[in-house]
Simulated assay, not measured.
Amino acid sequence: MIRALLVERDDEGKTAAAVKEIDEAQLPEGDVTVAVEYSTVNYKDGLCIGPGGGLVRTYPHVPGIDFAGTVESSEDERYAPGDKVVLTGWRVGEVHWGGYAQKARVKADWLVPLPEGLTARQAMAVGTAGFTAMLAVMALEDHGLSPEKGEVLVTGAAGGVGSVATAILANLGYEVAGVTGRPETADYLTGLGASRIVPREDLAETVKRPLETETWAGCIDAVGGAMLARVLGQMKYGGSVAAVGLAGGAALPATVIPFLLRGVNLLGIDSVMQPFDNRVRAWARIARDLPLDKLEAMIHPATLEDLPGLGRDILKGQVKGRIVVNVNA
C-alpha cells in the first residue's frame, strides 16, 4: 500500500481531497515506476485538488503535475532502477495520475534524467513554474535579448514563475524590474535580485495610446489581460514578451501597433508538450544558471496533508515562492 492524495467526486459532482492508502496495483499503465520523493504545487494543481477546472477527466484521481524521484522498475532501456528522474507536464496530474503519491507509473517518454548538480528536492523547488521560467528566458535570448539591451520586466514576480525568472535573470546580469500587487513581497524580490519593484497598479489599466515610452528590453509575463496589453506598448524597438500565464485574464485588449511600428515580438511559452531535447536543454540551464541559495530562499516545505489548503491558497494568489512537498513525510 502507498499513501496518496486522492480526489474523489460524489454523485452530486462535489469533489473532496484527502490522504488515503491505495494499492500500488491501482496505479495507471506505464513503462516506468518511480518512487516519488518530492512534488510541488502549481496553479493547475490547485484546480485539480479542487473542482478540477475541466482538467480532470475521471475520478478518483491523484493530482500533482510535477514530481522527482528514483526509478524503481522500468520496461524501457533508457531508464534503470536507481536512476534519478524528474517529470513535468504531459498532462500528468490532470488526465494521468500524478505526483501526489509515494509512487507514480508513467511513460518513459515523459521523464527527463535529473541533471547533475540538482537534488530531487531542488528540482521540485524549480518544478513546472521554474521550468517555464527558464523556457521563457531561453526564448527571449533566442530572440536577441542580452543584458546590455536594457531592463527586463517580470510580471507576477512574487509567484512561482516570477520568482525563478527574477533569480535567473539577475544571475545572468540583467536588470530586473519586478511587478507585484503585494508590497510586503518587495524585500523578498530584491533578495532574489530585482533591481526595482513596480507596483501592479502602475500597469493594471490599459491606456488609449497604443505606444508609450520605450522602457523594457524584454518581459516575462505571467498575468496576461490588460497588463500584457499595456506592456506591449512600452517595449523597446525589437523587444520581446514571453507570455507564460493568464492570472489577469485570457482576453488581450491590445492593438497591433506595437508589432507593426516597433517590431515587438509576443512569444508563447508552453511547458506541457515541450520536446525532449528542449527539456534537457532547459534543465541543464537551470542547473547552471539558477543560484541555489536564491532557490532555497523561495522554498516553503509541505506534506501531503497540507495540499488541500495549499490548493485553495494558490487559486487565491496567496502563495509566495515555491512549495516543495515531501510525499513521504
Rank of each mutant, 00 (worst) to 15 (best):
A186H: 11
N278A: 04
R200T: 07
L189P: 12
K236T: 07
D66N: 09
R322F: 06
V198L: 12
A4R: 10
L111D: 08
Q102G: 12
D23K: 09
K84T: 11
R196D: 09
G239H: 07
R312V: 12
W110L: 00
L145T: 05
S39L: 06
L266D: 03
L211Q: 05
A250I: 00
W90P: 01
R121G: 00
D10S: 10
S73R: 13
G99L: 07
M138S: 10
A247Q: 08
G173E: 09
A287M: 05
L315C: 02
V198F: 10
G99K: 09
V264A: 07
L114S: 10
D293W: 10
A18Y: 01
E151H: 07
G225S: 13
R262Y: 09
I2K: 01
L140P: 14
L189R: 07
H143C: 06
L169Q: 06
P308Y: 04
A287L: 08
V41E: 09
E8A: 11
V92E: 04
G178A: 15
V95K: 04
D187W: 01
G317M: 07
A35G: 12
P308H: 08
T119I: 11
A139W: 10
E94R: 08
T33C: 14
D11I: 05
E37W: 01
G218I: 04
E24P: 13
Y38L: 00
R285L: 06
L260A: 12
F276A: 14
A158L: 08
V85Y: 00
V19Q: 04
E148A: 13
T70R: 15
L315I: 07
K236S: 11
D142F: 09
E29H: 09
A139G: 08
P115S: 10
V152M: 11
L5I: 01
T255S: 15
P81W: 02
I168V: 15
T132S: 05
P183N: 13
K236R: 15
G150Y: 09
A18P: 03
I323Y: 12
G130C: 01
G225N: 06
G309K: 14
G225W: 03
D270E: 10
G224H: 05
L5T: 06
H300S: 15
P275H: 12
V92S: 07
A217R: 07
P199S: 12
I49G: 05
S195Q: 15
E77M: 01
R78G: 14
K294E: 03
R57F: 11
V198M: 06
A226L: 00
A125Q: 04
L252R: 03
L111G: 11
R312I: 10
Y237T: 14
Y174M: 04
K14V: 10
F131V: 01
L211N: 04
K107G: 10
T33H: 04
R209I: 00
Y38K: 03
T213R: 13
L140T: 08
V7S: 12
V207S: 09
E94C: 09
V231W: 04
P199V: 12
D221W: 06
A177D: 02
G162A: 04
L292P: 00
D187R: 06
T155A: 08
L192W: 11
H61C: 09
I65P: 03
L292F: 00
D289A: 11
T180Y: 00
G181P: 15
E296M: 00
A287H: 02
G98V: 06
V32G: 04
V176H: 05
A125H: 03
R281H: 11
T33A: 12
R78K: 14
